[in-house]
Design a binder for these strands. Structure first.
Lengths: 110, 110
DNA sequence: TCTATAAGTAACCAAATGGTTACACATTGA
DNA sequence: TCAATGTGTAACCATTTGGTTACTTATAGA
């Protein structure tokens, strides 16, 4: 996941309405734009703009079926960030262990 | 972590320069504003604005020591989101298991 | 004490964001 | 075929964002 994609994903998640829209899509796989917009106190176009942000971030994927746009939650970006952070915490923990060993060894040298 | 805080954290992370500034602070605990701003091709005030965003999101904490502002990385918000996502993946996995059990039981009923 | 250094504040400005309404186009189903 | 339904585009606008320069205040050290 490159930096541009990270920008898009974090930005998409940086708005409560958008997180709620994402949750709604996740809870109703294959739902359409109207279904989602009825859940929110916002114009349909407003909702569509949020959906566009989520889709640009690859957090949802959609498919035109006739006159409907069916939308699906895509778990991958969040999972990738989660793994990235998991790796980072692990690495940081290892670095702390290495530091601790060094301190202990210095203690034994004296 | 409430929704306002989530907004702040994700927004703070939604900019490559800001992620790089955060990494720089993390790599140099106790560093000052000038140290950070020398690392970037941006005015000091520009960097300060980014630092303010990171601090509002609680991703860094700082402390005025004389004329210096010493800054530290705060790992907590990212860890909290990481846990939140871990919980969610686990719950989702459990829900999938429950669903799978139900399908199997229906298969046995027939 | 005075100069250098570190940070803070204010103002400015272009671009981006996040909403709105109005209108248009495409598909569905009676 | 035509009305209903679903979506898309365009335009608008207020606010926010992300940078800049100019100036000020506070602290450190010679």
């Amino acid at each position: 996941m490159d930096d541009d994609q990270l920008d898009l994903v974090f930005h998409a998640l940086a708005s409560q309405p958008r997180r709620e829209i994402l949750a709604a899509v996740r809870g109703a796989p294959g739902c359409n734009v109207n279904f989602i917009s009825e859940l929110f106190d916002m114009s349909r176009i407003g909702v569509m703009k949020h959906l566009a942000v989520l889709e640009a971030a690859n957090l949802i994927v959609s498919e035109k079926v006739g006159r409907e746009r069916q939308m699906y939650f895509n778990p991958v970006p969040i999972q990738q960030i989660h793994e990235m952070w998991t790796d980072e915490f692990t690495r940081h923990f290892s670095a702390s262990l290495t530091k601790l060993k060094r301190i202990i060894e210095q203690g034994e040298d004296k």
